[in-house]
Every structure is written in structure tokens, then in C-alpha cells.
């Protein structure tokens, strides 16, 4: 049975205290890329009671995504943005969700709506990652960006860390493990990295602006 909004949020208040639960419930985060990083970040933030998520990804779900991305076999062929919205609704029915099934490029980034104070970079391609971080810093200098780089393979978990690069730019990952034929992506390490990103978002929401 789905709880009422009041029941759910009073449960969050009991768990985390009124002040923090209230901050999280009022926060809005945009997630760019809904693969192994983005789908995990979205679910973690949804479970934490985040108020609003904007989900952006042009891609549809394929079989090879399911080793690490938070979708179901029955959702193969759906847009990731639509499927993730559905999956979030099952666990966080009162989180407001906006979706864009669009590829973010240098040309359209100025007209896409990046809601909220924090943007998650969760692409898989290195050039797209760099483009997003550079463009957000240039066009939206007041927003926080939490990016990820280096989580391929099954190297030590302890290599994954969060680093503060500027006052508004945080980087999660080991910064070196590139994806390749020999170095593929596993759920374990990409989830670790996603958890770093989600935790950094919660810290920013709570006003703790350090890694």
C-alpha cells in the first residue's frame, strides 16, 4: 500500500530530523545521463526523499545495459528517461519528475532546462563528460556540478573517491580507469561511484561544501 505524502515525509523527519529532511524534500537535482551512474544516483536520491529530479538521456534500454543499470528486462526498448520515471514512482511516489529524451550537445545546452542547484554529470563518454562540465561552468556558473571519471573494471573499491576541484565542481571516481575491451563496466564499481555522487549531492543540500 502506498503511504500518503504526509506519512512518508513524517517518516523521513523521524529518520533524519526535521531540518535535514526538509532541506532534502525541497531540493531539485538534474541528472544528465541515465546509465550505470545516473540510474543509480536517481534511485538513491529518490529513496532519500528528494523533492524533484530532472532526468535527461536520449537513449533506449538495451540488453547490455542491464548488468549495471536500474532497469528491468521488461523495459528493454523503452526510453531510459521514461522507464526510470516509472521505477522511481514505485519507491518515491511524491518525488516530482521531469524527463527529457534528448541528447545534450553544445548547441542545445543553452535551451535545456537544468532545474535546481546541482547537476549530476553521468555520461559514459569522456568527451561528453568534459563538454558538460565545461559548458555548465560557463553558462551556469552558480550551479554545482558533480561529475564522475574512472570506474571501469574490478579494481579496488578504495580507489574511488570524491575530490573538490573548485567551489562548484566535484569529481568522483579513480580518475584513471578508462573503459576498454579488457576493462568493462561492472555494477559494483559504477554503483560505488554513483553512491559517491549521490552522497556529495546530499552534502551540498545540507550546506557541507567539501568532499
Amino acid at each position: 500500500m502506498i503511504p500518503s505524502k504526509d506519512e512518508l515525509y513524517s517518516a523521513f523527519e523521524k529518520l533524519h530530523g526535521y531540518e535535514l529532511a526538509n532541506k532534502i524534500s525541497k531540493a531539485s537535482v538534474t541528472i544528465c545521463g541515465l546509465g550505470g551512474l545516473g540510474s543509480n544516483v536517481a534511485l538513491i536520491l529518490a529513496r532519500s526523499g528528494i523533492g524533484k529530479l530532472t532526468l535527461i538521456d536520449f537513449d533506449k534500454i538495451s540488453l547490455s545495459n542491464l548488468n549495471r543499470q536500474q532497469y528491468l528486462f521488461s523495459q528493454i526498448g523503452m526510453y531510459k528517461s521514461d522507464a526510470l520515471k516509472k521505477n522511481i514512482a514505485e519507491i518515491a511516489p511524491y518525488t516530482e519528475i521531469t524527463t527529457y529524451a534528448e541528447r545534450i550537445t553544445e548547441e542545445n545546452i543553452g535551451r535545456l532546462l537544468f532545474d535546481g542547484d546541482v547537476i549530476i554529470e553521468a555520461f559514459d563518454d569522456a568527451e561528453s563528460k568534459a563538454m558538460l562540465v565545461n559548458m555548465i561552468a560557463e553558462l551556469y556558473p552558480d550551479k554545482y556540478i558533480v561529475a564522475a571519471s574512472g570506474m571501469a573494471g574490478i579494481y579496488s573499491s578504495n580507489g574511488i573517491k570524491t575530490r573538490k576541484i573548485t567551489e562548484r565542481f566535484f569529481l568522483c571516481g579513480d580518475e584513471v580507469s578508462d573503459i576498454s575491451k579488457e576493462n568493462t563496466i561492472f555494477s559494483s564499481r559504477v554503483s560505488l561511484c554513483a553512491a559517491h555522487q549521490a552522497n556529495m549531492v546530499l552534502r551540498i543540500i545540507d550546506g557541507k561544501i567539501d568532499a
Partner: peptide, 10 residues
């Protein structure tokens, strides 16, 4: 100066 060199995967 800090140069962040992105690698792929996500």
C-alpha cells in the same frame, strides 16, 4: 592549475 582529464565509463 588543475587539468582534469576525463576517462570513459558510466
Amino acid at each position: 592549475i588543475e587539468i582534469v582529464n576525463f576517462v570513459g565509463g558510466g
